[in-house]
Amino acid sequence: MADPVIKAHELSKCYRIGLAGSRPKTLREAIMRGISTPVRNLARLQKLTRFTGEELRGGGEDVIWSLRNVSFEVNEGDVLGIVGGNGAGKSTLFKILSRVTEPTGGYAEINGRLSCLLEAGAGFHPELTGRENIYLSGAVLGMTKHEIKTKFDEIVRFAEIEKFLDTPVKRFSSGMYIRLAFAVAIHLEPDILLIDEVLAVGDIAFQKKCLGKIKSFAREGRTILFISHNTEIIKNLCSSAIWLNNGRLVKAGAVDEIIEEYENH
């Protein structure tokens, strides 16, 4: 059997929460605190990116593990659904796999070109026109100028915004904006595509269109990781699934089995 395209080994990510200190009790204490504020602020800001050995081993009051020792493998052509409640670590996982942030511990091996859609329109600039934004956000997502040029018409047709190509996107309706953002993203051709909940946008017809596009993507043998709270879509789209809860991997396996357990837990 071929090597997995994604191999995550004990991935962990730790964030600092930033607890508020206690309130001063006396006037004298309040004044002293006021004077020492810069020193305390500096210490607090420096601590943001520094973790003590204790915190890294056992955790502490002021830290949270968004992911803790999560290991899984994805093979080429798999469509993997990721389920879990809010704060389960799904988006953190995507951020690590797409290199937006680095893990605190563990490692992941990626074989192939990977694109991540954490949020439609993140690469857009409101002042630029639709046409300019297609080029800019395409480049931000890793497309070459040539690729964007050849797909330009297809993107415009998919988004149904032909008339507004030269209007700044800040004047777009929110539906138009989202359609264009998704159209650019879905026309990427990575080997591995991470999609986070972006389907929860647009009207029903557009959602169906997007789903169709993702399905045809999967049929071409590309690997897809898909986060959604909509278990119906996951069941419809994915072959396998993993379930995350509070940063830990609860279970990985065939999609029906995982979804059933997730829905009944």
Binding site: H125, E127, L128, E132, Y135, L136, A139, V140, T144, K145
Partner: peptide
């Protein structure tokens, strides 16, 4: 480097737009 080119072009276009 193509992205750098797009970012620079954006910066220039946006500076005096509107």
């Amino acid at each position: 480097k193509e992205l750098l080119y797009f970012l620079v072009a954006k910066e220039i276009k946006l500076r005096y737009r509107q």
